[in-house]
């Protein structure tokens, strides 16, 4: 379970202070599928960075499965990212010149797991890319790269899957595939948080959180998920 209590984030640029989040309260239960929407600059990515333990709030508390992650050392944060979080980025963020299967293996490397090849293959199979194991990122289509990224996000069996505009760089068909995958993962019980600009994507979530100027504007649970169609 995820709890944000009065979380604020202020970026300091020289003398200027830029508030990116101001007093955000948010609770996400295990197994939820939440879409976070809002205009550009409203603080969505900042929120995700904090949820994903890539950054710590300037004030407020962030409880991840009961652990206060807002005051942890770099090292502890890295451990939490390794064990509990899976990231999916808009720009895929695969490690260049490293094959698909090795990219998927990487989180296991940092988690200190020795048997990596088989789980990585299995994860690639889950996203339908068994035939692309040895491909380099620049030999894959955008949709395929994002699927590799999803496989990589999944491999450590994280409790929380964070996707920052995962379909932002993809065409409609690939977007639908990716959303389908995320939906299926949520159906399998995983907590998924998707940041998006697209209403269609939001419509597919069970809960939509709308942000504006670093605050939560609305938090709405939808009755039913609309089916995505390619």
């Amino acid at each position: 379970m995820i709890q944000l209590e009065n979380v604020s984030k202020v970026y300091r640029m020289g003398k200027v202070e830029v508030p990116a989040l101001s007093g955000v309260d948010l609770t996400i239960d295990d197994g939820e599928l939440v879409a976070i929407m809002g205009p550009s600059g409203s603080g969505k990515t900042t929120l995700m960075n904090i949820l994903g333990c890539l950054d710590v709030p300037t004030s407020g508390r962030y409880l991840l499965d009961g652990t206060d992650a807002s005051r942890l050392s770099d090292n502890r944060l890295a451990k939490i990212r390794s064990r509990k979080i899976g990231f999916i980025f808009q720009s895929f963020n695969l490690v260049a010149r490293t094959s698909a299967v090795r990219n998927v293996e990487l989180p296991l490397v940092y988690a200190g797991v020795h048997a990596r090849r088989n789980p990585a293959r299995h994860a690639l199979a889950q996203v339908g890319l068994s035939d692309r194991e040895k491909f380099m990122p620049n030999e894959l289509s955008g949709g395929q790269q994002q699927r590799v990224a999803i496989a990589r996000a999944l491999i450590n069996d994280p409790t929380l899957l964070l996707a920052d505009e995962p379909t932002g760089n993809l065409d409609t068909a690939s977007s639908a595939e990716i959303l389908k995958l995320l939906g299926a993962l949520n159906d399998a019980g995983r907590t998924v948080v998707i940041i998006t600009h697209e209403e269609e994507v939001a419509g597919f979530a069970k809960r939509v959180v709308r942000m504006r100027d670093g605050r939560i504007e609305s938090d709405r649970v939808q009755r039913s998920r609309t089916e995505v169609t390619a």
């Binding site: 090292n75 695969l94 490690v95 940092y110």
Partner: peptide
């Protein structure tokens, strides 16, 4: 950055 995001420590 990517490596750190997926769990690499300092």
């Amino acid at each position: 950055g990517i490596r750190k995001a997926i769990g690499a420590t300092r």
